[in-house]
């Protein structure tokens, strides 16, 4: 673990990998130090902002031990998906399998929300499966709300219409983010997700 400077209100904790990030985030948020404002996990780091002293924060952050197995301990939510995405056959080709097998793998894996970003409620989901999907060469200017997509090692669901470069494999009618709902975001770091084949819609 390395603590990196991030101004006079935050520290950046750099960790070895995504598993350790999630374990560190889970441990830190289970018992947050005083004055912490935000804890932002990402691929290799956790940013922690404070309204108090950086020295106090630094000591507290060094004392955190990442929880092992945090990937598999959050609560589970099922997301029904109609697998008719425009890029499904491209993804199948990239993986050297059939479209049906892509669906089988996507629904067979258990996914975990590793972190959020890009847009409110957009979760970066990882699984034990070996996904390594390049982004589209030219991003779409409009990806519809609810599009289920893949990029790199991640899967995600677009919480609202936006531009995007991920490969679209399906869509869900579940509202991933709704600012008038409590909680607004269905995907929060540590939550486990299982995608369910909802047939042809």
């Amino acid at each position: 673990m390395r603590l990196l400077p991030s101004g006079d209100r935050a520290l950046l904790v750099e960790l070895d990998d995504l598993d350790e990030v999630l374990g560190y985030y889970t441990a830190l948020t289970a018992d947050p130090p005083a004055d912490v404002v935000d804890v932002v996990p990402a691929a290799r780091t956790v940013l922690v902002t404070t309204s108090g002293s950086l020295d106090v924060l630094s000591r507290a952050l060094r004392a955190v031990t990442p929880i092992a197995g945090a990937q598999t301990s959050g609560d589970l939510i099922e997301i029904p998906v109609v697998y008719d995405g425009e890029d499904l056959s491209d993804v199948a080709q990239l993986l050297g399998c059939s479209a049906a097998e892509v669906v089988e793998r996507h629904t067979g894996d258990e996914w975990t929300v590793a972190f959020c970003g890009f847009a409110p409620g957009f979760g970066y989901l990882t699984s034990a499966g070996s996904w390594d999907i390049p982004r589209r060469e030219s991003p779409r200017t409009k990806v519809p709300t609810g599009a289920v997509a893949l990029a790199g090692e991640f899967s995600g669901v677009y919480p609202r219409e936006s531009p995007g470069g991920w490969q679209l494999i399906g869509r869900t009618s579940v509202r991933i983010f709704d600012s008038s709902r409590e909680p607004a975001a269905l995907f929060h770091p540590g939550r486990r997700v299982r995608f369910v084949d909802a047939g042809r819609g």
Partner: peptide, 8 residues
């Protein structure tokens, strides 16, 4: 502030 972990 306080909701950054959800991408807000």
């Amino acid at each position: 502030a306080g909701q950054a972990a959800l991408g807000v």
